[in-house]
Amino acid sequence: MNIKTSNLSFKYDKKAAKPVLNHLNLDIKEGTVNVLLGLNGCGKTTLIKLLAGLEKPTEGSVIYGDKNLKDIKIRDRAKIFAYVPQQANVTNDIPVRQYLSYGTTNTLAFYEHPGKEEMEKVEATANRLGISHLLEKNLGEISGGELQIVLIACALIQNTEILLLDEPTSALDMKNQNLVLSILKSVAKEGKTIILSSHNPNHALFLDSNVILINNGVVCDEGKAKELIKVNKLIPIYGEHVCVSKDLGYEEISFK
């Protein structure tokens, strides 16, 4: 399923002079990995929220396939895409198993609880991502890296075509960044469409993804990571200290 936005604008306050997103147009093809890059506050997180239906556009629309997002029922949305929130918004006093079971909600009627079948799905996904040993622990008792994998696991359990991730690596150390990105890479191979926001251009290079560069609420450039992530394209956004180093034998964005 393709995802489009047409003339998408958003203001948190209707009276604000400057919109967060300003007539933004996107066209994301099925089965691609897309990294939203841009400065803090450029509108990456807002865009993800709009795509997930958590904020309403001030103007314009988000279109999944041939349907406007606002015309899709909330229950059906959860069958189309899964959303991975930033870590800070998660309650911390329920067990991982219970949290993961919430991922099966889109297959249940409102009066139903996750049953045997659903719990098997939970365990299978936990096994696959190597977090089976965490199932009985509370969310508050596991590390940040483990929590991020749990959040992704929960989204995978939803079994949707599309994954939306809001800064999945921002709170993690190098090792865990690598772990999370590797998981995303393997998920991408299954043909899922992935959209994630990130503050690190190298992640786009690692994922060999499409890049959508956002600046001042509009898409200022897009294309394949290897073509787009060039010094002359990044300097206008990240400033003139950006450089490309090849010290390690491959291209890496660094700063002088």
Binding site: G53, L54, A78, N89, T105, Y111, H113
Partner: peptide, 24 residues
């Protein structure tokens, strides 16, 4: 008692509940 599962999800906050398929 009929809506205990939605209650659980509402406890998770709007973003979580809504994207898991519950009309928050």
């Amino acid at each position: 008692l009929l809506i205990t599962h939605p209650i659980n999800l509402v406890n998770q906050g709007k973003a979580e509940a809504q994207t898991k398929g519950i009309n928050y």
